[in-house]
Amino acid sequence: MNHLEEIVSHWQQLNWDKKLSKVFGKYVHLIGDQIEVLKNSREKTSIWKLVMTDGSEYFPIVLKIFKVPLKENQMLEINMYARAYSVYHEYMPKLYWLEPNEDTQEIWMVTEYVKPLRGQIKLVPQHLGRIIPTIAKFHAQSFGNRFSQHAHLFDTSLPQFDSPEVRKKGMEYMEKTRQYLDEAMKDPNLKELVEPKYKAIRKILKKGPLFFPELIEAGQCLIHGDLHVHNICCKNASDDGEWDIQLIDWESVKYGSCWYDLVILVEILIDFRSDWQKNEEQIRTRCVRLYAEEMKKHGITFKEDPLNLLKKAYLQRTLEKKLAKHLQRALNGQKSALLKRYLEKVVVWGEELGLI
């Protein structure tokens, strides 16, 4: 469903005011002229911000509409709300309702609207210290053997970092990386950037697809999988007090190394923020230390230097997929804000960590 008029029409036909009145415990109704589209993709999902009222208070909600047949990533998010919400609700917006719409061959999910962190506050490195404790608590809940207590909430569709399927995909992407590196060496716009790193990266790729088994040995857990600032929400973001962090967009959830989430939250953010890069070593060290301290509070320690685990997860993630995607983007004439950083860090950290 892609148009506002359709939303309002089906909302009325399916009596959603009545359904949500049961949830809120009082009569509420939709304010028809306060509907905002947050995302609209005919092939995937559409996301709408709506406002309910009881006449005196206002209750912002999110309506997320999934197209049927569902894609694998859509099934993962629906499962998080339909089955795993009882365990992980602390880290998620409140679920108000979830049901199929048979008339439109869609699934409608209604949740609480929580303000995205982005837009509330200008993010500075110190703010990561407000986010990391929540992420550590989330990871610790299913870390290692603890996941067995929650395994019944997930089916075989939950991606596993060390599964044969993931390794096979990693090998396919690495073959593409080799191909794209060769093409880049023939491209006058890319050769100067790629050539100094070409031989080293080709040598590193021979050691895949699992470059660092110690990432598995260090312990795995349920991870969000796409932990960038757009997917982090907070009711009360300010420079004072603790933040009540909740995460949205659970379509990339998987069972894997906890350090993958830290890579996206910390390291990829550093890669994008040129103004942070002059202090990047200090920022990542402080974040990794805080994360390790928070995990220790939950009974989890790491035998290997946590900073090395972050770097290994960054390299594994980059080499198994991301470098190929950004090389392809550059070869297609599109801008890639990360390609230069990927090339540089793969070689520098690859040598530091024994891949070269």
Score class of each variant (00 low, 15 high):
148 S>N: 15
149 Q>D: 13
150 H>N: 07
150 H>I: 02
151 A>C: 11
152 H>C: 02
153 L>A: 08
154 F>I: 05
154 F>D: 05
155 D>E: 13
156 T>I: 14
157 S>A: 11
158 L>R: 05
161 F>T: 03
162 D>K: 00
164 P>I: 06
167 R>Y: 12
168 K>I: 08
169 K>D: 08
169 K>H: 12
169 K>E: 10
171 M>K: 14
172 E>T: 07
174 M>H: 01
174 M>N: 00
176 K>D: 10
176 K>Y: 11
177 T>S: 10
177 T>P: 03
178 R>M: 01
178 R>S: 06
179 Q>D: 12
182 D>A: 13
182 D>C: 09
184 A>Q: 01
184 A>F: 05
189 N>D: 14
189 N>K: 15
191 K>M: 07
192 E>N: 13
194 V>E: 00
195 E>K: 15
195 E>F: 12
196 P>Q: 01
199 K>T: 06
201 I>F: 02
202 R>P: 00
202 R>M: 09
203 K>C: 01
203 K>R: 12
204 I>D: 01
206 K>W: 04
207 K>E: 08
207 K>W: 02
208 G>K: 01
208 G>E: 00
208 G>I: 00
209 P>V: 13
211 F>P: 01
213 P>N: 07
213 P>T: 06
214 E>S: 15
215 L>W: 00
216 I>Q: 13
216 I>T: 13
217 E>M: 10
217 E>F: 10
219 G>T: 08
221 C>F: 05
221 C>D: 09
222 L>W: 06
224 H>M: 03
225 G>E: 03
225 G>P: 03
226 D>V: 05
227 L>F: 01
227 L>V: 04
227 L>P: 01
227 L>Q: 03
229 V>W: 15
229 V>L: 15
231 N>S: 11
233 C>E: 01
233 C>T: 11
238 S>G: 13
238 S>N: 12
242 E>L: 11
242 E>D: 11
244 D>T: 11
244 D>I: 04
246 Q>S: 13
246 Q>K: 15
247 L>H: 12
247 L>P: 09
251 E>K: 04
254 K>N: 10
255 Y>S: 05
256 G>N: 14
258 C>G: 09
259 W>P: 04
